[in-house]
Design a protein around this nucleic acid. Structure first.
Length: 257
DNA sequence: ACCGGCTTCCGCGTTACCTCA
DNA sequence: GATGAGGTAACGCGGAAGCCG
């Protein structure tokens, strides 16, 4: 299971979330997880309908190929066989700028009307395969990315973006769950607090209405058979003595250290 | 050992498109 | 058919980390 395995979100009462990096031999940069420490509330995001694999009935590879050919553009050629970028960061930025300037002059408008750059909707097979892969590992190393892209006839960039968005969705869902849990926790504590306040109030009322010996725990009270006095030994060495007939005296002796 | 540039990857915020009620 | 909401693919940006000269 991809996201419930590494993404254990810390959930202390202050919502202190710390991001930690974990080195992975295959992909050092890829594992930044939300770590949890005690006390923790581990939530399982797996299961449920979201991750249920869509039942794949038939595969129209011709359709897939058509889609692939339509989208086989810049990003595909940005990747060499090892998945390393062949364009420098500067080039990417320049390209971004170029694209945005193109958009300004109406190119974006143009492709919106054409099938070529219409937003791709991944089919069920692709989605389920990606989900399946995500369950195994929430990040991909370049090789995995390439293989998955080849298998699904997508550009590596698309696979990468899908994983990024998927992680974001997972995190969002986890945050929502955490919020819900915290809210419930807060409600519980509020109730408990209210109950304790009531209890305290009752005890105070009881205390002001009761004689002193009644306020002491029963185990600390002893009745003197000869004088019919009750002896209560307080914590600080103080002794409360109450006559069974009503009158009482309190005496303190220094506590032995 | 330290530094700066380059590259890659990621998270985050946002946009644009699609689907559905 | 029009519309608004929700889902999600894609983008842009900045930061972190590794590598290299």
């Amino acid at each position: 299971m991809g996201f419930d395995e590494p993404s254990k979100t810390r959930l202390d009462l202050g919502l202190g979330i710390s991001s930690t990096s974990t080195a992975d031999a295959a992909h050092v940069n890829a594992h930044r997880f939300w770590k949890i420490s005690e006390p923790s509330l581990t939530l399982s995001l797996c299961g449920g309908t979201e991750n249920q694999i869509h039942a794949a009935k038939t595969v129209d590879f011709d359709d897939l190929n058509r889609v692939f050919e339509d989208r086989e553009t810049d990003d595909l050629f940005r990747q060499d066989s090892t998945g390393a970028s062949s364009l420098s960061n500067l080039s990417v930025k320049r390209e971004r700028e170029h694209r945005s300037s193109e958009d300004e002059v109406g190119v974006q408008r143009a492709y919106r009307g054409e099938d070529e750059r219409k937003k791709l909707r991944l089919n069920k097979i692709q989605s389920s395969r990606l989900e399946e892969s995500f369950k195994r590992h929430t990040t991909l190393n370049p090789k995995q990315k390439q293989e998955l892209a080849r298998e699904l006839k997508l550009r590596p960039r698309q696979v990468e973006v899908w994983f990024q968005n998927r992680r974001a969705r997972t995190k969002l869902k986890q945050t929502e769950l955490d919020c819900e849990l915290l809210r419930k926790c807060c409600d519980r504590l509020t109730d408990e607090n209210r109950r304790l306040h009531m209890e305290l109030k009752e005890l105070k009322a009881l205390k002001s209405a009761q004689p002193l010996y009644m306020q002491l725990p029963a185990a600390t009270l002893t009745m003197c058979p000869s004088c019919e006095r009750i002896h209560g030994h307080g914590r600080g060495g103080g002794v409360a003595e109450t006559s069974a007939k009503g009158s009482f005296t309190i005496s303190f002796k220094p506590a032995l250290v």
